[in-house]
Design a protein around this nucleic acid. Sequence first.
DNA 1: GAAATATTGTTAATTAAATCACAGCTTCGA
DNA 2: TCGAAGCTGTGATTTAATTAACAATATTTC
Lengths: 215, 215
Amino acid sequence: MHQSNDYFMTLPERTVERLSEYRRSLLQCLEEGKTHIFSHELANLHHNTAVQVRRDIMFIGYTSMQRKGYDVRELVDVIGEILDSEMGLNVAVIGIGNLGRAFTTYFVGKRSKLNIIATFDVDTTKIDRVISGVKCYPLSRLKEVVETHQISIAILTVPADSASEVAAQLVEAGIKGLMNFTTIPLNVPNEVFLDEYDMITSLEKVAYFVKSPRE
Amino acid sequence: MHQSNDYFMTLPERTVERLSEYRRSLLQCLEEGKTHIFSHELANLHHNTAVQVRRDIMFIGYTSMQRKGYDVRELVDVIGEILDSEMGLNVAVIGIGNLGRAFTTYFVGKRSKLNIIATFDVDTTKIDRVISGVKCYPLSRLKEVVETHQISIAILTVPADSASEVAAQLVEAGIKGLMNFTTIPLNVPNEVFLDEYDMITSLEKVAYFVKSPRE
DNA sequence: GAAATATTGTTAATTAAATCACAGCTTCGA
DNA sequence: TCGAAGCTGTGATTTAATTAACAATATTTC
């Protein structure tokens, strides 16, 4: 009933994002006892069209029972095969201020193949404390801890003035993916996947479109 | 020396974002006493190409002294004319947990045409306290405060289970732009500009590309 | 069991964004 | 003063993402 494409192929970035979102809605459906779902229903749960949903699902090679909609359980599993790593990935949060805590708290308790297993900070009063269930290490031990715990993803929420330096240390420590929440654009080698989110830019964008609506 | 296009035209979304980022780099340049900048220099500060920078600047109708690079001061001003509203816009943060505080703190003290002038929460211990310089109101007074303070943008950082309800109240209160940081996709009328950022999705995306690098 | 209906999977068309390619100024060096 | 070099501004092209259009298929209805 499903057939994953055996030759290698990376998905479009936006499709990956949507799959992650679909999965969460689908899990919600399961909890509510819903076993099948139509493309237009899934589309309505996001702001999105039925065609887009079908196209995304086509990308991952899943195919439904015609006319009954998609089997929710199966679809969740197939998305899992695509998004998750077999053995899970370890994640660290660097800088445990408000944003770092927000992120950590959001994640803890979520069933997931992504485990936040360490936080780091320079503030000595935080060191060795357990925040949202995760132990805080001093930044000076970054490389050591990243290596011993095989941490492959880092969430960077340090103050702007240390962003570049810490990012360099992370790369040096062998991190593979980096989410940058600071307002400093980072340069990392090509093999490190970098995702940047800049709150100030996002807010200024919203402001622009509030001022100048399209159409 | 500069000529803004007098007929109306909204910019591409990505261009708006980059302009916001350029402006911050440019302000940094000013502080360092740098008065002119070449497109390739600005490109290097972001991870970006010189053509892209020139194209973005072309969109806003600014044109440099040939061969001297762009006048930093002028460029900052022109970007300001595009992005900023004359009289500024008022912003509220809804839900003052870790994320709400992170956002508020980031913003306070930033010279800007965007003023965070209220926060809201249900937690009665927070009401009337001043957090990062901004007063916290009870959610029950949302509509009243939004109207009297002419708040046009809201940052939604409430827990998932109240997201939809609060969003509806915001729309009802006449908000014009909404940044959704909850993991619940929202439906708002077309005239409200909606920007969604989902941390879980972003992290899952990074994980996917760490697992399956492109090329 | 034939016609009408609902939904998927996919090819083709469209739109949006990024990149290429190059003409045209300006300044510099001789 | 002339040629070379360095950047900009922009039309043309390419690439990526979205949307339209529709044939194929399963289900229901009569």
